[in-house]
Design a protein around this nucleic acid. Structure first.
Lengths: 178, 178
DNA sequence: CACAATTCAGTTGTGCACAATTGAATGGCT
DNA sequence: AGCCATTCAATTGTGCACAACTGAATTGTG
């Protein structure tokens, strides 16, 4: 249903109260401001996901699957654990995802002989071959953003800084640090 | 498993090739750059989600449920359709989410008498009361970001611009516009 | 008025994110 | 050698995102 209808008040710039060097907003306005920020990030993430979905459909990959393939194309074979560290994903997400990639013939999973606990993930020929058409993906994504290279790089830096701060904050919020 | 382990190469700043006013990277480097950017956004979104998860646990809300409540607190009762427009979510996501909010006693869903197709969503007393403790959430989130108000506002603007460009690009990518 | 197109909420099915748990394998320690 | 804590992949269960579809109600048009 109403997919792709246009955003409501949330993304406009309401909250008359605080101009640019504003003092702390009231508690009431905090709630509004918060709505805007968390909504914006949520929306941006889903919008990006949507563009990738459309563009990756030709390759038969989802967005997280593409992330996995990017790592494997660049770094070669690797145990599940290490893949999870690169992508910050745990086995609960990776295990079924990798099975689907295996079912698609892009990847093989074999238990390591050295350490029977770990599973090596490696590309099949087909998986390696998929890198070729995938080379054309980034340019299309780049164009879809409407940002230039410097803007994108800048955005990436902010996001990374945000992620790293948020991660440590999440740890501190947890009694016992998790 | 390895949840909260630290990011691999992806979030560092590799790609030696292109300095700041760089010309277009090679196809190879496009792939690497893309990996960094899409990974960064993905990671930021999940990191934000993680902080909200921790902070909202006290209220018994998930992040998307909190977004729904924010809209209802600010705008009052509203049909599902309109809620979906504000949040850019469709009924496939909202229907079960609203049922869970109803089961939690925060919301009531009643079919409109004027138009029997639509369902009015309104807060219960309990739902209204939850606004009170929720007022303290935004400040904690704000602190967790490590950004100041202006930085956050700036980031929000960039993300909104990105979202709106990505949305129109997604439409154009689809043969027939969808 | 009648009928076709549209609008709406809901359902089903697939895939991802994350918490919690399981069970096997490993490595350190005595 | 024997034992224990740790490390690993996998599984289970909950919740969200989205596509595709269903079926009911409504609206527009002839």
């Amino acid at each position: 249903m109403a997919r792709k209808s246009y955003p409501g008040y949330m993304t406009r710039t309401p909250t008359p109260a605080h101009a640019s060097a504003a003092p702390s907003p009231s508690e009431e306005n905090w709630l509004r401001l918060d709505g805007q920020i968390c909504f914006s990030l949520h929306a941006a993430s889903r919008a990006f996901n949507g563009v990738y979905r459309v563009i990756l459909k030709d390759l038969g990959l989802t967005y997280p699957q593409y992330l996995v393939m990017l790592v494997l194309w660049e770094r070669g074979e690797m145990p599940v654990k290490q893949l999870g560290e690169h992508l910050r994903l745990d086995s609960g997400t990776l295990s079924p995802l990798l099975k689907r990639l295996e079912a698609a013939g892009l990847v093989r999973r074999e238990r390591s002989t050295r350490d029977e606990r770990s599973v090596e993930v490696r590309l099949t020929e087909e998986g390696v071959a998929l890198r070729e058409p995938a080379l054309r993906v980034p340019r299309r994504i780049f164009q879809a953003t409407g940002f230039n290279l410097d803007e994108l790089r800048d955005l990436r830096e902010r996001l990374d800084r945000l992620t790293s701060t948020l991660d440590s904050a999440a740890l501190e919020e947890m009694p016992g640090g998790r």
